[in-house]
Amino acid sequence: MFLTRSQAKEFDRLVKPHLRMLYRFACRLTGNPDDAEDLVQEVMLKLYPKTQELREVEDLQPWLNRVLYRCFVDRSRREKRRHEQAFSDLGSDEDHNAFLDRFSGEGLGPLADMENDRARTMIHSALDELAPDQRALIVMYDVEGWPQDDIAEVLDVAPGTIKSRLSRCRARLREIILAKMEP
């Protein structure tokens, strides 16, 4: 909370190299640049008083990602933009199969080969409807391709649970997309 000038400089030195990476993650999570910058700024406000603590962190990148993720979840909760939805435990293989048939893009049905732009828009609006933790997981694994250990650190869960969580999130996402595809 209380920083001397040299501590303030230390803060800059520690954090600056990671700012663009944080912005990128924030963009993925929030879905737009303005919210992303607000989110990174919130993280800065939160961390500034903790410069001492920052200095002791061995690998800052995942640590910072975790702080940003927490801020994102808190913010989503406060804004109540995303309401928690109960979803079927594990999407069944039949569901997955039905989804793939409708999404194949090779003329299996009237909606199957919708043009890419429309499909993309639909997917991103579906992603926005996911609960924040689910969205974050999809972003980290499917979009950014982070290692499972890094993802586990951000989410504060055991690395061994990532794949099953991911499966559930994807199933939920497909469920939302399918609902959007219904005529």
Binding site: L19, V40, Q41, G105, A119, I123, H124
Partner: peptide
């Protein structure tokens, strides 16, 4: 196909971004 569509290019922040963030802190 659908997984690929999840990944859209992310815009880069402008050149003053870092400065703004540190200044905010």
């Amino acid at each position: 196909r659908w997984r690929l569509m999840l990944a859209e290019p992310v815009s880069e922040p402008d050149s003053g971004f870092e400065q703004r963030m540190l200044q905010a802190a």
